[in-house]
Amino acid sequence: MGMSGGGGGKRGRTPMGEINVTPLVDVMLVLLIIFMVAAPMMSTGVEVDLPQTRAPRMEMDEEKLILSIDIDQKVYLGETEVPADRLEEALLNNARIQQDDEIYVRADANVPYGFVLRVFTIIRQAGVEKLGLVTDPAGGAARVPGEAPPE
């Protein structure tokens, strides 16, 4: 990588020829793997208006841990609401999140991006590495009566 030598090479010092991988590794370690999945049928009792996208259909598994955020910004683990004032400590100390290192998030299409991101941050701190964003398959069964049909 001669280009990084610049003026330093004149007095016998040869320019560093290797990439310093440490910052690279650092970046990799904080990466959260995010993938999108479309869930045709969800059995959680939490009503959420999912965003519509084209995404691969997910093999739905009852065992997966699902976190839902409804239109009122209430957060649910499975079917159980997590009180807003305890959201952070409840998620950070959740043994299942720490162990599974995978969680599926169903956030309502109308929840502010900022709020969703706040939840993501907590989840990541809790040790999750894979985050599944659950969406409504475009062109799938209409969920809300009167909703504009997908193109």
Binding site: L77, E79, T80, A90, L91, R96
Partner: peptide, 22 residues
């Protein structure tokens, strides 16, 4: 980490609330 509604549950449990915390 507990999310179960302990008041409501009393001496019983609502299983999903506990499986959600592992």
């Amino acid at each position: 980490s507990f999310v179960a509604n302990l008041e409501q549950e009393g001496l019983g449990i609502n299983p999903p609330s506990w499986s959600a915390v592992g």
